[in-house]
Simulated scan of single mutants.
Amino acid sequence: MDWTTLTVALAFVTMIGAVVFAYISKQKVENRMNDSSARKSTLAEDKDSHAKPADV
């Protein structure tokens, strides 16, 4: 195996990993947006900006 094969394989695995990570993150965000009992973000218009963050 020469270095070009290794480079292509690493690039492909990295891209697949990034896509999987983005998909999982998107699913978590959408689930949180659809959950009416989830705490509001401190960036929400009607939430105090000095309150404890929702994700902590």
Rank of each mutant, 00 (worst) to 15 (best):
V19P: 02
E45I: 07
T42A: 02
S36C: 06
F21C: 11
W3G: 13
E30K: 12
A22I: 11
N31F: 06
E30H: 08
I24Y: 07
K40I: 09
I24G: 02
R32I: 05
T4Q: 14
K40V: 07
H50P: 00
T14K: 00
A51M: 02
K26Y: 15
D35R: 03
T5A: 11
K40L: 07
I16W: 03
T5C: 09
K28E: 15
S36L: 10
T14Q: 00
V56L: 10
I16N: 03
L10T: 07
S25T: 11
N34H: 07
T5H: 11
V29D: 12
A9D: 06
D48H: 01
M33W: 12
A54F: 02
T14W: 04
A38K: 07
V8T: 09
V29W: 12
E30N: 15
Y23S: 07
S25M: 14
E45G: 03
G17H: 04
D48N: 01
T7C: 14
A51L: 01
L10A: 06
A18Y: 09
R39T: 03
F12L: 14
D2W: 12
T42Q: 02
E30V: 01
T4C: 12
S41D: 02
N34P: 04
K26N: 14
A9Y: 07
K40Y: 10
V20H: 02
V56E: 15
K26Q: 15
S37I: 10
M15A: 14
R32Y: 15
F21N: 13
D55G: 07
E30D: 01
K47E: 15
D35I: 01
E45D: 04
M1T: 14
V56N: 11
M1W: 14
A22Q: 12
V20M: 06
R39W: 01
V56M: 14
S49M: 12
K26A: 08
A44R: 02
V20Y: 02
I16T: 05
D55N: 13
D35C: 05
D55V: 06
D48L: 00
K40G: 14
T7Y: 12
A38Q: 13
D55S: 13
A18F: 00
K52E: 15
A44L: 05
T7G: 15
T4R: 10
D55E: 13
V13Q: 04
N31H: 07
T4I: 14
R39S: 13
E30G: 01
V8R: 00
D46E: 10
V20Q: 06
Y23C: 07
I16K: 11
R39M: 11
A22H: 08
A11N: 03
D35Q: 02
I24S: 01
I16E: 08
S25P: 01
V19E: 00
